[in-house]
Structures are given as structure tokens and as C-alpha cells.
Design a protein around this nucleic acid. Structure first.
Lengths: 210, 210
DNA sequence: CCCCTTCTTGACCAACTGGTTTAATCGCGC
DNA sequence: GCGCGATTAAACCAGTTGGTCAAGAAGGGG
């Protein structure tokens, strides 16, 4: 790849993801990047695991970061595709039903591709400069949709008024982010639904005796 | 240091922490280990920042891991000292009051030494083998005290019975672990108390309208 | 003054990192 | 067969890593 600006490449519309059609590399990169931080992840290992040659890698990718961004984009698209199954803007679902449905979708994706969960959680502990580079390319994809949901729910009188929406949104965000601690891979679908309902109940009605 | 088994050293009673009296090294290590993962953290950088010589370092420490463990131990002791201020075994505090007091202590420590919070959170995303090594030396220091608290509270009829104690304990654990997302360094002590009370209220009574 | 232990110094090591380069080769359209 | 882009292999680079080592300094006790 030429000296073209990295950001440019990712803003081009027609530019195709160089990972497409190379499942071996995709798998290897996902394995390594979900296990190690960006700095610790060995590009040599990835290339070797993918049965690829270093020369061909650098023929297609600008550098290690380019591979990371390619992977990130692929996974983001896959996740987006899954979440498009449920658009709550035009339903009559109340707040907690909405949250429940979104949680189920999130868990379904996390169980299908647990390495993605590991990767995105690992991303949060990367160096600031690294995170900035990624965010600079992809933009703030993670705009806080939860805050707006809670605000709307409060306006509709579905959540309490004596607690700030920020606090409630943050509580939901934290629990959704770490939901894998409560939904383990060993559970079957029925158990998962039970656990989600328990969690929603706690968030809705609290833990104190009625 | 001799070839002595690393685990041995840490199980010896009299063995003094080689970090004691070397605040420069302690600070440098805390800076680096809280910013980078163990693998990415550069021992050379730490030594340089501490104004130390490599030879002298290896005269006192077995290896990089030895330094990490020394730091870990020092911080654990400091945290323990702080938490000894409140022992709830002989108070009449109910469950939620107990949780509240513990949260306040936790936040006080996290605000005094934010790098410790960063370090212990980073620890959770380290490689499995690394975590095992550390746990092997220090033992499961993090035994689940929350689960026992919730069980006891349920027996006393202070928390609901239609939700599993595991779920409730996990929810508390997750939120306590990420409490820094809701308590920011910019807040003064009064604001912190308000936020904690909000959080406890949510956990006790939920987010739905009464 | 010497001896001995404790500590310091900086050169040195092999291994590995991400990345480059060059030249040979493969495979497909024309 | 020719041309050309894609791919391979290998050597190579400078820089960094964690870790070693032998020589010497420091300093106190005899």
C-alpha cells in the first residue's frame, strides 16, 4: 500500500475491507487482538497463524494498525446488522421492555462471537493515544443512546424523577457492558432469558423487600 | 537475588518488600504499570524514571514480575489498612447501610490513589497465565465477600427472595467495580455522597416509578 | 591498612518487534 | 507467448525488550 493517509483510506466510500475473503487472517487477527492488547499482540504471530506471508500482508495493509482497524470495522458492521433486527423508535414498548430486548440482542451477539466482546472490552483499557487514533477514524460510534432512552422514559413517566437520568443511564450502561459476568457461556437459552429477567427486575424494582 | 523460588520468597514471613524505602521506584512502577499492561510496561522505562541502575534493580529484584508483585502487595496492604476502619461484623447496620459505608471507603481510597484503581482494573484484562501466576502467589484475596453479605441480608429479610443471591451480589460487584464511572475526580466530597446515595437508592428501590 | 560484604555501574546478550526490500514466481487475461 | 498484477520467500533493518555479568566502588570492622 502506498503512503496514502490512513484516515483517508477509511473515509473513502468504495474502499473495500482488505479482510474480506481472507477468513484465515480475520480469524487469526481476532484471536490475537482479543487475547492481547494492541502493543502486545504480535503481528508476526498473526501472520504466521493465518498461513500468510509477511510480504503479502504489507502488500495489502499499511501497517499493524490498518489490520486492527479493518477488523474493528468488520465486527462493527456485523454487530450493527444484528441490532437492526429491532428498532424501537416506532414500537409501543415501554422502557424496560425495550432495554430487555436490546439486552437479548446484545447477548446473542456476544455468545455468537465472544472474541468481539473481549476485543471491545480490551479496547477500553488501551492507551489513550491508541483509542484516540481509532476514534478519530471511526468517529464516536458509541454515542450514548442509553441516556436518551432514559430521558425519554422519564418524560413518559416510566422511570422515577428523584434520581438523575445520568445516574440511571450510567447504571444501565455499566451493567450492560459487563453482562457477561452474569450470563455465562454454559447457560442455555432458557436460563439466559431467566437471568435477563432477573436483572431487569432488579433494575426496575430494586433489591429491597417489597 | 539468588535463584530462590519466587513463590517461596512471597510466602516467607520476614521477607521485607524491596520497594520499602524506594519511593522513586515505587512511584515509577505505579505510573507505568497503571498505564500499560504488564507485557507492554517497559522495565527499562521504570528503572530510568526511578533514576536507578539496571544492575542495582536486578540485585534487589528477581525479575520484572517480582517488581509487579512487590507493588501489588504494597497497595493491597494500604487498601486493607483503610478498610479496617470499618468492620461491620459487630454493628447493627442493615445491608444497604453497610454497602454504603463500604462504597464510601472504596471511593476514598480510589480518589487518594487513582493509579491503584487503574492497576487493579488492568489486572483483570491481563493474560490468563499472568493472572494465575499472581493469584498463585497471593491466593484468592478477592474472595467474594459480597455474596456472603447478600446471603446474610436475605436471611434477615432485608433483600428480596424472588431474585437469586448470585444475581444480586453480581450486580453489586459490577457496580462497585466500575463506580469510578459515576464518581468522577472532579466532584467534591458532598457531591460524592449525593451520588452514592443515588446509587444505593437505585439498587434498593429500582428505577421504576414508585 | 587490609579484608569482606554490600552495592553500583555500564557494557553486553540473545530474542523479538514492526517494517522494508529485492528478486523470483505464480496465475490469469489477452 | 506476453504482460502484469498478485504472491512468495528470504534476508535484512534499526530499535527495544528482559536479563546477565565482571569489574569496581563504597564503607565499615578488625
Amino acid at each position: 500500500m502506498s503512503e496514502a493517509n490512513r484516515k483517508m483510506k477509511w473515509q473513502q466510500e468504495g474502499a473495500e475491507n482488505p479482510l474480506n475473503g481472507n477468513t484465515a487472517l480475520c480469524e487469526a487477527a481476532l484471536d490475537v487482538f482479543s487475547t492481547y492488547s494492541f502493543g502486545e499482540a504480535s503481528l508476526n504471530d498473526i501472520i504466521k497463524a493465518a498461513g500468510m506471508n509477511k510480504g503479502s500482508f504489507y502488500y495489502r495493509f499499511y501497517d499493524k494498525m490498518d489490520l486492527y482497524l479493518s477488523l474493528f470495522q468488520r465486527l462493527s458492521i456485523e454487530k450493527l446488522k444484528l441490532f437492526e433486527q429491532y428498532d424501537d423508535t416506532n414500537t409501543e414498548d415501554d422502557f424496560f421492555t425495550s432495554i430487555r430486548k436490546k439486552a437479548i440482542l446484545g447477548i446473542r451477539f456476544a455468545r455468537k462471537e465472544p472474541r468481539y466482546t473481549a476485543l471491545s472490552r480490551r479496547f477500553l483499557t488501551e492507551e489513550l493515544s491508541f483509542r484516540e487514533t481509532v476514534i478519530d477514524v471511526f468517529g464516536g460510534v458509541t454515542e450514548n443512546v442509553l441516556l436518551r432512552m432514559v430521558e425519554e422514559a422519564q418524560a413518559k413517566g416510566q422511570v422515577r424523577h428523584d434520581i438523575s437520568v445520568q445516574m440511571m443511564a450510567e447504571v444501565f450502561a455499566i451493567l450492560l457492558e459487563r453482562i457477561d459476568k452474569v450470563i455465562t457461556p454454559a447457560m442455555d437459552d432458557d436460563e439466559v432469558l431467566i437471568k435477563i429477567d432477573e436483572l431487569i427486575t432488579v433494575l426496575r424494582d430494586g433489591t429491597a423487600v417489597e
